[in-house]
Amino acid sequence: MQTLEFQNIKKIERSATRKRIFFRWLLFLMLGLFALYYIAPLYVMIVTSLKTMEEIRQGNLMSLPGEIIFDSWKTAWSGRGGIDAGNVFLRPFFWNSLKMVVPAVAISTFFGAMNGYALTKWRFKGDNLLFLAFLFGCFIPYQAILLPMSRTLGILGISNSISGLVLVHTVYGLSFTTLFFRNYYISIPDEMIKAARIDGAGFFKIFFKVLLPISSPIIVVTVIWQFTNIWNDFLFGSSFSFGEAAPIQVALNNMVLTSTSVKEYNVDMAAAFIAGIPTLIVYVLAGKYFIRGLTAGSVKG
């Protein structure tokens, strides 16, 4: 009797092992398929950008280029030189975007941190109401603020300028950065702030010496979030700037749509890729902190 039961258990155990292996392989297969599906557009972009127009006209979207030529990348970045004066190329607009993104991200992150700190550690009457107002800011659709914002920029005399865009993105981003930092700082024990107050540190000292040094996870999250949003923004850029002051996404649009003669798919693809490179770099460099920061709870201390 006992041996029979034992054999049964052995059988069950064996079939369970087989099942596990089968499902493991199924899982990897599915994941592999999804990965291919998501990477396909990128592949097409790169391959197309390296082909000549003749090759593209043959219509083999997925085929590798016969000869790798970087001409289209050059054209997208710095143009063809004087031949075609109306031609748009990305280099100046890339710098425009960088000049807009860096201050906008820095300022909105810094003040978001300050807001989060004040809202959680220096409670005052109506602080929750104020936070609610900030939260409300996250839900205002972009389109709703276009008109009032353009009027404001006009009054301030900074419409169609990089500084105008910096202001727009800072103000719009503040809701999100405040939310991020507020939720992070609320998990940090108040006693730490009390101890610092008794030690003699004031509002700013506590912020810079005690809180900011332990905020790196949430700073990374905020910077990635803000950087991606501001870099990729098209609506504000196209509404509040034109011509030489435009950020790269607007220039990319102009470049692709204003090509007078033939559509140069290889140049368009290269341009689109160039416009996407900075966000890719930020993700690659800080991606793991992003995940960590999103799930970061309280600081052990």
């Binding site: 006693e191 008794i198 030690d199 332990i214 201390g301």
Partner: peptide
């Protein structure tokens, strides 16, 4: 009177040490 001017010191249940500072800097911060 502000806490820092009362010439008191306090020890908390959660220790409330400053995580980013070394023990030395924690102790001499005040």
């Amino acid at each position: 009177v502000e806490p820092k001017d009362r010439n008191i010191a306090m020890v908390f249940q959660s220790y409330a040490l400053y995580p980013a500072m070394t023990v030395r800097n924690n102790v001499i911060f005040g």
